[in-house]
Design a protein around this nucleic acid. Structure first.
Lengths: 204, 204
DNA sequence: CCGCGCCTCTGACATTTGTCATGCCGGGCG
DNA sequence: CGCCCGGCATGACAAATGTCAGAGGCGCGG
């Protein structure tokens, strides 16, 4: 155990981040070199400190964990990314993995486990929480086409068809068609239930 | 400082709870005597250990922090309740205060501050995060009547009017009237936007 | 006691949806 | 090359929603 693993912690909740930093610092082979409270800040900190492992919260102001991971992938290829999340939605895991994230764990793990996982990730292996993985597999891939997902996303705010049509530069009729097919594919009662379902599965 | 303040920590995120317990234990006058990961568990722990202060997360499985606080109020009047929350919605604060909660803080505070606030609450004072308080004041009271809120809540899942009517034991026409008046009061485009608004303000 | 606000319902109407059939275009694939 | 799929659109019809007017009952405060 020569040089310690240099960590970047990013989470918008001060309480959590501070507590985490303190706990991880107790581990002799881990060293927290930077902390951030938002996506952009995390990126800046990473550039400045070049950590070995970045522990990112999935939901942060500015840019979410996956977006930050994507940027890091090209800017600091040597830095492994580990995503920590409160409520893990299946789709997020998929997106994260696609972005080159090496680890994905829920906040329900203990600090002990997290430390181990950080070491695992730093060693070059991947680690995905078994339960989240199972969810992701059972949820399967999104059956929605690009446009269907796009329209569904716009519908999420409860906007009427006319507004969605305008914002998506589509005819109102087309919007209704997409909405309709999305609703059918998801087996939902109506567009709003469809939005809920798609959200739950992380497809939007 | 003769006897330490006995604490109950309740949060469904292991990582946070553990980290918090460790950090707060560093304070000489604070002692974590029990931990819980859900509403019911928190209640059981409180009964078993009779803590001086209960630090509860707002969102927990089973029963949320406010519900737990309400129960504690009658069962353990000596136990002061402090609510910690991730995203503080104005309405929640109001509900919490009405339930006899003594403190309400966002997770963005530092552990240091939290320790101080715990002491404040234990001493019998109240503490509410200034920013959340400002939000709550500017958001004002809910303009919705009991039934309007009730119906809106049922509508939140995207259920059709017929189902809402059945679940609320009302006639479909009445449901539509309530929905309509709620939508007007909130200045929303339609029921779904109304649900979003009411949620943001913590009125549902 | 009277009025007011809330709860409840009905009926009617305009508008917004959901659903379906149908058509055109363009890109990939056997 | 021909076919199918996805994107895009129209038109038409049925069903769900939003909006209004009106009306009876109940409880509370002036």
């Amino acid at each position: 155990m020569s040089t310690p693993v240099r960590l970047l912690l990013a989470d918008d909740e001060h309480l959590i981040r501070g507590a985490l930093a303190a706990l991880l610092s107790l581990e002799e082979d881990l060293l927290v070199v930077a902390e951030a409270a938002s996506g952009p800040e995390a990126l800046a900190m990473a550039r400045a400190h070049e950590p070995d492992v970045a522990v990112l919260d999935l939901q942060m102001p500015g840019a979410d964990g996956v977006k930050v991971a994507t940027s890091l992938r090209t800017e600091l290829p040597a830095c492994q990314v580990l995503i920590v999340t409160g409520h893990g939605r299946p789709g997020h895991l998929k997106r994260a993995l696609a972005a080159g994230v090496r680890g994905f764990v829920p906040k329900t793990v203990s600090a002990q486990r997290l430390a181990e996982i950080i070491r695992t990730v730093h060693a070059g292996s991947r680690y995905v929480d078994p339960e989240l993985a199972a969810d992701a597999i059972s949820a399967g891939d999104s059956p929605l086409t690009t446009r269907e997902a796009e329209v569904l996303e716009l519908a999420a705010e409860g906007a009427p068809v006319a507004e969605i049509a305008e914002r998506a530069a589509l005819s109102p009729g087309t919007v209704r068609n997409y909405l309709s097919s999305a609703v059918t594919k998801l087996g939902a009662e109506n567009r709003h239930a469809a939005v809920r379902l798609a959200r739950e599965r992380g497809w939007v």
